[in-house]
Design a protein around this nucleic acid. Structure first.
Lengths: 247, 247
DNA sequence: CACCTTTGTGTATTTTTTACACTAAAAAAT
DNA sequence: ATTTTTTAGTGTAAAAAATACACAAAGGTG
């Protein structure tokens, strides 16, 4: 049956774009490749999909094998299938992405990777394959998603301050937000639990700590609530609160 | 090199979800398969990606070969790669979708398909493979996209009335829109050219005809304009304009 | 010419978004 | 102990956007 001529030696891979947030910086998890091609180069943690596993499953497995990270929610983003994107043959890849709290996971590269490390989004080197392109597409998707879902909580420690949350949003959206308006909006969604605790050991007024209300989020989700968070249409200058501090 | 064990007999396909709009109904283009598996069954127009072509190119070629339609913009949606989705072996598929004016294209199924035909979205049968799932995902994406881009013009004839446009939006969003508010919003985007023509041969007041302003759309796109079109947050009843007609 | 059907229009109300500046709290420096 | 430094926390008014809603106008039909 000539139909089967369409089955040829080819392969699929999955590549994971894992975002984290630390020190006010949006980061992505990269590995240094321990295999040809691109041996020694930085790349997204990705590998082949095996014949007996589906794509989502492969993404989860590969991430675990290459970085030691498991138990995260991975979302499919896009496929990349340029003819020569892989020097060894025809390989298309399916990109997945996820957001995780950096501090929650210890990174343990498998033998197949020389190293696994967080890199600031703003300082990502030349990656192997077409991984720069993939990263860019995933970052776009993140930016887009964060406007319609209260994402980002995944990236913060369980207890966080409103300023930390705002910085995270600013990093993702690549814009400045107005402090008062941001707080008003976030608090009005009623998705944060005020822990009645404050920061300790900071050399200034300590901020209150909050926690994400997972239960309420699930409840709202199921009733089709719209989480949109905008403040991006008009250009506006920062709230220069501090200008009064030095008269 | 054991690396190459990961290249095995497998295949990629592309499947196209082509939306059209006619007689107030949102439609999708299906073919009746002329090949095993699922010979004789309705399916999305899809076929294998060849070794020497990239995914976007394959989608365009396949659509042309199976339905005679070419010169349309296809957008990648998602990959589907369940292990047993294809009875002949491991095949993952990449779904593409597009919107076209039904009247602009004459459908000419190639020998590989027995038939190609528009089907109302609301009355799609059991399709081959996992194509019902794919169709559903694409419809979701359409619904989502139409809120953030002035899509839909692709689906209408070059000259259309505001009521036709509104019906189209209602079909996609699966909701009712308020006539006056819809017009206000659409016209304020300033993307329609008033042709100073009216419908002819209708048994009621003829509507004005408009045309989509492609140039202005491109201009606004490039300056990052936000086309969002909502009116979906609160539940609201229809504008029962006609209630005064029969006092 | 009455009548049927669909088009086309405006306004008032409510909600959301935006812009903007000072006091409060704690630690550090004097 | 007082002052300085730094960040947290707060409210309001103005502008823009979204919503709800009803009737006259245009053309064909019988």
């Amino acid at each position: 049956m000539s139909h089967f001529d369409n089955f040829f030696k080819s392969a699929f891979t999955v590549d994971n774009v894992i975002f984290g947030f630390d020190e006010g910086d949006l980061k992505v998890l990269l590995i240094r490749r321990g295999e040809e091609p691109y041996h020694g180069k930085w790349a997204l943690p990705g590998y082949f999909v095996y014949p007996n596993e589906d794509l989502d499953g492969a993404a989860i497995r590969v991430l675990e094998e290459l970085t030691g990270i498991d138990n995260v929610y991975l979302e499919q983003v896009q496929s990349f299938g340029a003819v020569n994107r892989h020097p060894f043959g025809r390989v298309i890849t399916i990109a997945y992405f996820s957001l995780i709290k950096i501090s929650n996971f210890s990174i343990q590269p498998a033998s197949i990777a020389l190293q696994a490390q967080w890199h600031s989004i703003s300082a990502v080197a030349n990656l192997a394959f077409d991984h720069n392109k993939i990263l860019k597409a995933c970052f776009q998707k993140l930016k887009w998603l964060v406007r319609s879902r209260p994402l980002g909580f995944e990236l913060l420690p369980p207890q966080f301050t409103l300023t930390e949350l705002q910085h995270l949003y600013e990093a993702i959206l690549e814009t400045d937000l107005d402090k008062r308006n941001f707080r008003k909006k976030i608090l009005s969604m009623d998705l944060l639990i005020d822990l009645n605790l404050t920061q300790e050991g900071v050399a200034h007024r300590p901020a209150k700590l909050y926690q994400f209300d997972e239960e309420r989020y699930q409840a709202l989700l199921s009733e089709g609530f719209n989480f949109e968070l905008k403040e991006s249409r008009t250009q506006h200058k920062k709230d220069k609160s501090s200008e009064s501090a030095h008269p």
